[in-house]
């Protein structure tokens, strides 16, 4: 049963949980729904992990499972890029100049495959270790490592393809 201790842990997790929901969702409203649905499930659950680490993984897994359910429901898998598609090439020098606009990064992130968004959201946004991510995804650590690498390469490729308007600071540096 969800108790006060869980409530306190949830307080400390809320930013990361919501950030994770934002990363997985295409709109803020969807993220809020996802986040709130996860709270609902957590509070209504008959069995809630008592261990803090297990509870943390459990909460993120709730969000992830809800997200996957939603994707299935909405038949959106077809809109996503092939999960394991390799980018054509690794990012070259100067590509970091494109990493200046949060909106661009977010748009590029949302164009990634479900698996790539999934693993990047867990490691870079939710802050999970590889071991925790492997546990959460129920996949070997080696798979997490290779998936992270491919996902970041895919993100860099998306950013290269995006129209970029560098911030002035970046423009100055280019001169």
């Amino acid at each position: 049963m969800f108790d006060d201790r869980h409530h306190e842990t949830l307080q400390s997790l809320r930013r990361r949980l919501f950030g994770y929901a934002c990363a997985l969702s295409r709109t803020t409203e969807d993220a809020e729904d996802l986040y709130q649905d996860a709270l609902v499930r957590a509070m209504a659950a008959r069995s809630v992990p008592n261990d803090a680490r297990a509870f943390r993984v459990w909460m993120f897994r709730l969000i992830r499972n809800l997200w996957i359910d939603r994707l299935r429901r909405e038949h959106r898998r077809g809109e996503l890029i092939d999960a394991e598609a390799e980018p054509e090439e690794q990012p070259g020098p100067g590509d970091e100049e494109t990493l200046v606009d949060v909106l661009l990064v977010r748009q590029a992130f949302l164009r990634l495959s479900k698996d790539h968004r999934d693993v990047l959201a867990l490691v870079d946004i939710a802050g999970f270790s590889y071991d925790e991510t492997a546990d959460l995804l129920e996949t070997p650590r080696g798979t997490v490592m290779s998936r992270i690498s491919r996902a970041r390469a895919a993100l860099a490729a998306q950013l290269r393809a995006a129209p970029v308007i560098p911030f002035p600071r970046q423009t100055e540096r280019r001169r």
Partner: peptide, 24 residues
Amino acid sequence: ARIARLHRLKAALAGIAEREPVAR
């Protein structure tokens, strides 16, 4: 430079979701 790019990419990703849940 490759390491620096990856750090930037990681930081940029962390930045896209740094928001508080909104009460609505």
